[in-house]
């Protein structure tokens, strides 16, 4: 039990990172990755004929937001 806790603590320390440099870079990379995946998924959903409203519901934002962000980049189906 103790060892499990210890390893969890170690993992958490490594992951959260005491070193801000590592931690911040990880956050930035993660954000970029999220944005890329969002672009990919939205594009694919549009190609499959999904409406902006349907996409917005899944992403938890308004349809105007999705459309403003991707309408031009993705274009029409």
């Amino acid at each position: 039990m103790l060892t499990v806790m210890q390893s969890t603590v170690q993992l958490a320390e490594g992951a959260a990172g005491q070193d801000p440099d590592v931690g911040l870079r990880a956050v930035a990379a993660l954000r970029t990755l999220t944005e890329r995946l969002e672009l990919l998924q939205v594009g694919n959903a549009r190609k499959l004929g999904w409406s902006w409203q349907q996409i917005a519901d899944r992403l938890g934002v308004s349809k105007q937001t999705v459309h403003r962000k991707y309408g031009r980049r993705i274009g029409r189906r």
Binding site: A15, G17, R25, A26, A29, L33, R36, L37, L40
Partner: peptide, 28 residues
């Protein structure tokens, strides 16, 4: 993308990539 930084928080970029490439149509 900063692959080392992502690995630091337990995200294997190559694994993510392999899954995405396998499941998404090439055109998308």
């Amino acid at each position: 993308l900063d692959r080392d930084a992502l690995a630091g928080i337990g995200i294997d970029l190559d694994a993510v990539r392999a899954r995405i490439e396998a499941s998404m149509p090439l055109e998308s």
